[in-house]
Amino acid sequence: MIKIENLEKVYKTEEIETTALNGINLHVKEGEFVSIMGPSGCGKSTLLNVMGLLDKPESGSYKFLETELLKLNDRERSNFRKRNMGFVFQNFNLIDELTVFENIELPLIYNKIPSAERKKLVNEIIERMNIVNRSGHFPQQLSGGQQQRVAVARALVTKPKLVLADEPTGNLDSAHGNEVMELLCELNETGTTIVMVTHSSHDASFSNRIINLKDGHVISEKINKGKTEELI
């Protein structure tokens, strides 16, 4: 599904140049759950941003279902993103001025889904996420775990082919963290491809494959046997 080859990304400031991604090669199959790990500053988040079309690399190739994405202009990137990708962030990034329902509805509005269908889709996912009684609340009125559930619901409501998660449990206690990881697993089981950046080996243990980055290079790749066998 995803073929990334020789991806390079350099951050330049007035004084220094930092190579965040240094010739990354990465393939992700459809239905896979991949974790990306590594120490701070190794380029995990940069890689995720490039995959989510939020950032542009200097060189390399990024094919998604055989479409080369790095050649797209800003508008085409926006369109591609909203049709194919969902995002889950460490700090949830819910819009404070919108209720739970409205936050989840937002991507559907941008995908020009008619109002009645939007309502149906949002209600479905709210039920699935077990946050029905919270739908009229504002994000500040929810616990961290609940906020992340809303964020996941928002990422899933458009039924994206790929979900990108950036430290989804980073701001949560272990109980809430586990809940979110289980949610992602369930999602993966229904066929959604997931790429997750994490610091936590525990979280990574939920995925099929773990990729380790250091200084912008892929230094190792490990198949999560227990998980794969389970899949088989």
Partner: peptide, 11 residues
């Protein structure tokens, strides 16, 4: 944040 989220959602 609002701008960021909206852009991520394809605006």
């Amino acid at each position: 944040k609002e701008v960021g989220v909206k852009k991520v959602l394809g605006v």
